[in-house]
Simulated assay, not measured.
Amino acid sequence: MTLPLLVGYPLARSARSSARRIFPMRGHRRIEDPQVMRVQRARAWTAAVMSLLILIVYGKPEDMAEAQAQYWLRLIVTPWLLLLSAPVVVAVLFRWASPDAKRAMRPLLRSAGRSALWYFGAFTLVPLLALAAGWTAQLLERSAGSPYYLVPCLMYATFIPMTWAALFVAFASGPAVRSAFNTSQVHAALPALLTGVLVWEFMVIGLVVGGLPPGPPLIQIATLVGGPASVTAVAWWEIHRLRTRYGAGLRT
């Protein structure tokens, strides 16, 4: 265990430090409104309890498995949905903003773009290094004149950057998703806008992948639309409070 610990601990510490520097743990809100956060938590717990009750009353064993599969699907799909959705929402907000607001947003947009490149660069590096190491090892094994130590040296040389990149993605994923790759720093209303867009995208994905939720037709429609509609209502209420209480309107 000594060698893995000596190699693994510095790698994990370096990856965690880089992830926290690029994606701070509390960087997902420019303005934190305690009342909005309480309402968001209450809505989330209510939605979770209602979903569980519907599964218990109307669900079948395969519905439980489908709910777990959709949960893991959301974890996997969320970063890629953000990569596609965030630039569109930011572009609309940027076009709508006043000239003074645009000047203030430009350097923050460049910083958010660099953060996204860091994340997806590390994410892509892991399979690329694994494939490159595998192909090179096969070529060396087939080559009769290559020294016997080249394959383990090659595997060790690719294992270190591949492990660092995987640890960086693991440490950065939570803060990166919460801050939408630091685009939340561009404008105070962006987290609410992105949340309102993502819930409807997840509704479509869930409908395509898993179909309608269990229960009578009225319960199915209420379950399908009620969650995204309630999240959107809370998001617009948050935007209203940002404008009226903190002076952070969509154009400012």
Rank of each mutant, 00 (worst) to 15 (best):
T252K: 12
W80T: 09
D100H: 11
L5E: 03
A48F: 14
G27P: 11
R95S: 08
A47T: 09
G196W: 00
R95M: 12
P191H: 01
L224Y: 08
L108K: 15
P228I: 00
G196K: 02
G59A: 04
A104D: 12
S51R: 10
F202G: 14
V199R: 08
A176K: 06
A47Q: 12
W118Q: 03
S18H: 10
M203H: 04
A188H: 03
R41V: 08
R106S: 07
L3W: 13
W200P: 06
R43V: 08
V177N: 15
N182R: 13
F123A: 07
W96M: 10
H240L: 07
Y149S: 13
W80Y: 11
K102R: 15
L5Y: 11
L82Q: 10
L84D: 08
A97M: 13
R13D: 02
F120G: 07
Q40R: 13
W200Q: 10
T124R: 05
L75Y: 02
D100K: 12
G121R: 04
A233P: 07
G59I: 04
N182T: 11
P147V: 02
F94L: 09
I22Y: 00
V186M: 05
A130E: 02
A157E: 08
G206L: 00
V89T: 07
M25T: 09
G206T: 03
Q35I: 11
A137W: 00
L75F: 04
Q185L: 07
I239E: 01
F181Q: 06
L242V: 05
A157M: 12
S85L: 14
A19V: 05
A188P: 02
L212N: 11
G27E: 02
A112S: 15
Y149V: 05
I205R: 03
T252E: 04
H28F: 08
I205L: 14
R178L: 14
G215N: 10
P99F: 02
A44I: 04
T232C: 09
V126W: 01
A132H: 02
T46L: 15
